[in-house]
């Protein structure tokens, strides 16, 4: 058994001070093994995005311990152990698609010659090879997100963090993108932490769904998704899939009304 890629014990986060204090997370215990695809799901304000950002050292925990890839989150960030994809593609609109993918490679001092090749490789991986010279405003939302994913994987991190990446896309594009992400996960072997508030999405993508309850955010349930690793359209019609969706939905309801949980 390899070491877990994320290990959280008793993690809590409080924003602000005095009157404006907000407790976003409380007592989070979570373990993510290498190669896992874990979804964090919960209602607005349950702290799932905060938890993702704690893992990425974009925010620091107030209590508890958090180990990412065997190190402190700050060190993991300095070592470039993870890539992140946000809900908005956040592409730089003065750079073309290829240059956008090269951005992390520039900052991480990859040799000049290697950058264009690596970038084009990643664009081929997300099937946007022909768009290297295009600019972000020329691409659709789904395509922009694919560029963002290519960028996040360009430096082959061990971990991929995704914060509701498909939230702004329409349903059909969303399903296609979900298929894409599963394919990339299988091909690259990256561990994934995926924040969403779509129950079908969480079940379809993950090996495990972590259900969170509203503020202060706690983990109210964890549901193993025992669907086969290769998933496609047929999976969406599999009875076991529907059962799991119902299970997650009920877990969410329980979490919201305060029953169960740690």
């Amino acid at each position: 058994m390899s070491a877990p890629v994320v290990e959280a014990r008793g993690v809590g986060k409080v924003f602000g001070t005095g009157d404006a204090e907000t407790e976003a997370l409380r007592g989070i215990d979570l373990e993510i093994a290498a190669g896992d695809f874990v979804s964090l799901i919960g209602p607005s304000g349950c702290g799932k995005s905060t938890l993702l950002r704690l893992i990425g050292d974009l925010v620091s925990p107030t209590t508890g311990s958090l180990v990412v890839n065997g190190k402190a989150p700050g060190q993991a960030r300095l070592d470039r152990d993870y890539g992140i994809v946000f809900q908005s593609a956040t592409l730089l609109d003065w750079r073309n698609v290829q240059k956008n993918v090269e951005l992390p490679l520039e900052i991480m001092d990859f040799p000049d010659a290697e950058r264009p090749t690596r970038a084009r490789e990643m664009l081929d991986l997300v099937q946007l090879g022909g768009f290297a010279d295009h600019y972000p405003w020329q691409l659709s939302g789904g395509m922009q997100q694919r560029v963002a994913i290519a960028r996040a994987l360009a430096f082959r991190p061990a971990l991929l963090l995704m914060d509701e990446p498909f939230g702004a896309l329409d349903e059909m594009t969303r399903e296609a993108m979900q298929q894409e992400v599963l394919r990339l996960w299988a091909e690259t072997g990256t561990s994934v932490v995926f924040v969403t508030h779509s129950i079908p999405e969480a079940v379809f993508l993950s090996t495990r769904v972590v259900v969170m309850s509203p503020r202060p955010g706690r983990i109210s349930d964890e549901i193993m998704v025992d669907l086969p690793p290769r998933r496609d359209l047929d999976t969406r019609e599999d009875p076991r899939y529907f059962e799991l969706v119902i299970e997650v939905r009920e877990a969410l309801r329980r979490g919201e009304s305060g029953i169960g949980g740690s």
Binding site: T17, D19, A20, T22, A24, G45, G47, S49, T50, V59
Partner: peptide
């Protein structure tokens, strides 16, 4: 590493940070 320990460039108001990604602005 040293430059990254200087967190001041990332400083924004704490409530704004929370609001921006949780999408849930606490009343204040």
């Amino acid at each position: 590493d040293d430059l990254n320990r200087d967190d001041s460039i990332w400083e924004t108001s704490a409530t704004d940070v929370f609001a921006s990604f949780e999408g849930d602005i606490p009343a204040s």
